[in-house]
Design a binder for these strands. Structure first.
Length: 779
DNA sequence: TTAGGGTTAG
């Protein structure tokens, strides 16, 4: 029963107030890490805004500088033990206040609890609101509950503040826990408490629960006010439920509660979120049409800009931004951040926004700088990006990893790996705690700059920086290794990723399988042995095929849906090489002696028809069951095999799978239908000598491959592949499946089928085990 | 000693 051990204030795990469920800080989430992510930025903002003095649990100082280091040592030990030892309560309370100012909430609570154990605590001497305020800014629900427990006679306002902490932390469970505590203490739940509860549900995305609370409130005879409706509409807005938002607004109007700017702003946000830009402007008009007109504020402007930008109306967003001047709004960094971010393709506009802000004396915060640097990066203005940061630093603005991460992203976008590497070294020497996304941006820059070796060095550096590479790190590196066709590097990355418990994604899977296919094709071309007969049956057996199949399997297990491209590549790795001696060996392996010169179509007897490893069928059948390739009905007349949207290997195996199915139907005594194969066509324009263009159809690569396959198999077809459709006659097919064998006298009489049939029969039994009924053939 | 609103890429 411990709270998140990596709390923002970097403290030791603590027991929770609530029994059973541990409270977790909501802002320490995991992100995808490329090039930055919201959660990390939020976390960083919290860290830099509220906690200038950070100590890591292991005693390392996170935000390293001398001043911080000194102040760290002014504080008592995190375990709080030596604080109480023989010290006067007033001294302990001033220690408490110092800790509170530093935002070290867990230690604050521990100190108070320690005093309580020693019967030295008088909670009347502690200012409650300040503690709850800090809890709100740090989303420290757990500490807030523990603190409340120390108050001997909590009032309704105490619970209101506690509830408010839950609200800011989006902890609806905690909020309902507070409600229970209030009821247990026999207080009457007031409007403020209900409103905060509604707001908590709103922030946690629980719209239905929110309305339940609202109705309960009304039923309990508590009158909702403008704050309550504000929270309600906000909840609808966050959930993108415009209709409900206006519904709540309607109730509010019908109860004669006068809407204020907060309510209108929430309505505009709701419209913007669901793409209803015009309606957002209607709300703006409504604000001005009130008996006492309400001017827009910076939040209105921000919401309107976002509404426009969400709908792709960048020009309109820029017009809205100008309203800042019209209404003489000074604004806060947030609204300027929205403006730059929503129009980040327009570097000139971003610069104007930055100027306006500077002129109005609004100090940019880290988030704004980060977005501005992004915009510079998008515009390819790498020097400008560095300048922005230098200027900010000169102005004494606290710059953290969020902005530096954007700068790294800008280096990466500008494909300037040297600058990226310099920045990385600078960050290391500044002892700036880097994030995975920063390093991912560096690795991207290095890979783009064809510096795979350096990128791999950075990867091995990461662990030393206390960073765990994520799936994006490995994806970037694998893409680079594929670009260089460096399978060894790829396999090394793959095994390292496995060790790091990074599950395969499509990018990683595609890169490895792509390299495997290239390696396999090359080996086939060079005549290297890639097939073994060890199991008695021909099997494509080599390292490339094994790795490709393994990665394909692993990806499926990890829940990755393979694409047609990946499927085709895997099948490519199961393709038997065109090699006369191999073909002879395949026939020989059948164990029938036949006059090959008279009978060229023995391929129908071989598993995989001498073209593919039989495992290819299972792969395609599985792909059909997953909907990656369409299913074929073997019962329709004619059987239609549509390979128009398939790649070469897939098209080939797909067709062979149908043939295999029909072979089994024939063995079961069915009459074979005709088979129609639909082939893709490529149109090309011919200049006719008489003038005017003429469009003709050409057989594409897939069509040619399919036709060539049928010719190799000795299976006759009608029609021409350049018409997009060919046909195999059912009778022809039957004869092909039942070749007349000239069997050697040692094996039986000529024309005697028994031995080869029994062999064939065994083969079929074996194959039938692999077949999933209802997959490819929807019988 | 108490309540409602915003900011980040691909």
């Amino acid at each position: 029963m411990f709270a998140d051990s990596e709390n923002v204030d970097g403290n030791v795990p603590v027991a929770t107030y609530k029994e059973g469920l541990p409270y977790r800080r909501r802002d320490s989430g995991k992100g995808n890490g490329f090039p930055r992510d919201r959660k990390i930025r939020n976390l960083n903002k919290k860290i830099y805004q509220s906690l200038p003095l950070l100590a890591h649990p292991n005693g390392m100082i996170r935000n390293l500088n001398k001043k911080n280091y000194q102040s760290f040592h002014q504080f008592p030990h995190p375990n709080g033990m030596q604080v109480t030892d023989g010290k006067h309560p007033s001294e302990q309370l001033s220690a408490y206040n110092r800790l509170l100012r530093a935002g070290r909430l867990t230690e604050c609570v521990e100190l108070l609890e320690d005093m309580e154990r020693n019967s030295l605590l008088d909670m009347n001497k502690v200012y409650h609101a300040k503690f709850f305020e800090k809890c709100k800014s740090q989303k420290a629900v757990n500490e807030a509950f523990r603190y409340t427990k120390l108050i001997p006679n909590p009032t309704l306002s105490t619970f209101n503040m506690l509830m408010s902490v839950c609200g800011s932390s989006q902890d609806s469970e905690g909020a309902f826990q507070v409600l229970r505590l209030v009821q247990e203490a026999r207080f009457k739940v007031d409007c403020k408490l209900y409103t905060t509860l509604i707001s908590t549900c709103a922030k946690s995305g629980k719209v239905d629960l929110m309305f339940e609370v609202f109705h309960e409130m009304v039923n309990a005879g508590v009158e909702p006010n403008v704050h309550t409706y504000g929270a309600l509409i906000d909840g609808c807005a966050r959930a993108g439920q415009v209709a409900k938002a206006f519904g709540a607004y309607g109730i509010m109007r019908s109860k004669n509660v006068k809407p204020d700017r907060v309510v209108f702003n929430a309505l505009i946000t709701a419209c913007g979120q669901s793409g209803a830009v015009d309606r957002a402007f209607d709300v703006l008009a409504e604000m001005g049409a009130e008996t006492q007109p309400i001017d827009p504020d910076h939040i209105t402007i921000g919401a309107l800009i976002r509404a426009c930008a969400n709908a792709g109306q960048v020009d309109r967003a820029q017009e809205v931004y100008e309203m800042i001047h019209q209404y003489n709004i000074k604004g806060t960094p947030e609204v300027y951040t929205i403006a730059v971010n929503c129009c980040s393709g327009d570097w000139g506009f971003a610069c104007r926004v930055y100027d306006d802000m500077t002129r109005k004396g609004v100090v940019p915060d880290e988030m704004f700088l980060s977005v501005l640097i992004d915009a510079a990066g998008h515009a390819g203005k790498l020097d400008a990006a560095f300048e922005i940061l230098e200027n900010a630093r000169d102005q004494g603005i606290n710059i953290g990893i969020v902005s530096y991460s954007s700068l790294m992203g800008a280096c990466s976008k500008a494909k300037n790996w040297q600058k990226a590497l310099d920045l990385y070294e600078d960050l290391k020497s500044m002892k700036m705690r880097q994030t995975v996304s920063t390093v991912n941006a560096l690795i991207t820059a290095l890979c783009d700059g064809d510096q795979l070796q350096k990128a791999m060095e950075v990867l091995s550096d990461m662990k030393g920086l206390g960073l765990s590479p994520n799936c994006i790190t490995y994806s970037i590196l694998l893409v680079a290794s594929e670009k260089k066709d460096d399978l060894d590097a790829g396999l090394m990355l793959l095994s390292q990723a496995k060790r790091d418990r990074i599950s395969l994604n499509l990018v990683m899977c595609r890169c490895i399988i792509g390299m495997c296919l290239r390696g396999f094709v090359k080996a086939c071309t060079l005549g290297e042995p890639v097939v073994s007969f060890d199991s008695g049956r021909p099997q494509v057996d080599n390292k490339w095929t094994s790795v490709a199949l393994m990665v394909y399997r692993d990806a499926m297990v990890a829940g990755v849906m393979p694409t047609m491209e990946v499927l085709s590549q895997v099948l490519g790795c199961l393709h038997l090489p065109y090699d006369v001696s191999l073909q002879d060996k395949l026939i020989e392996n059948l164990g029938v002696s036949a006059d090959i010169s008279r009978c060229s179509n023995l391929y129908s007897l071989i598993d995989g028809f001498g073209e593919y490893d039989p495992r290819a069928f299972s792969v395609v059948e599985e792909a059909a069951s997953l909907g990656i390739v369409p299913c074929v009905s073997l019962k329709s007349i004619p059987v239609v095999v549509d390979v128009r949207n398939l790649q070469i290997h897939t098209a080939e195996v797909y067709l062979l799978t149908v043939l295999k199915g029909l072979k089994h139907r024939l063995a079961a005594g069915a009459k074979l239908p005709n088979v129609t194969i639909l082939l893709p066509l490529e149109k090309t324009q011919l200049l006719s000598p008489k003038g005017g263009d003429k469009t003709i159809n050409l057989a594409g690569r897939v069509s040619q491959a399919v036709a060539a396959l049928l010719r190799r198999l000795g299976l006759q077809y009608q029609g021409n592949e350049s018409y997009g459709k060919i046909r195999i006659n059912g009778l022809v097919l039957r004869r092909w499946f039942q070749p007349k064998l000239h069997v050697s006298p040692f094996m039986g009489k000529p024309g005697d089928w028994s031995s080869s049939q029994s062999r064939l029969g065994k083969g079929i039994t074996h194959q039938q085990r692999d077949i999933r009924t209802g997959n490819l053939s929807s019988e």
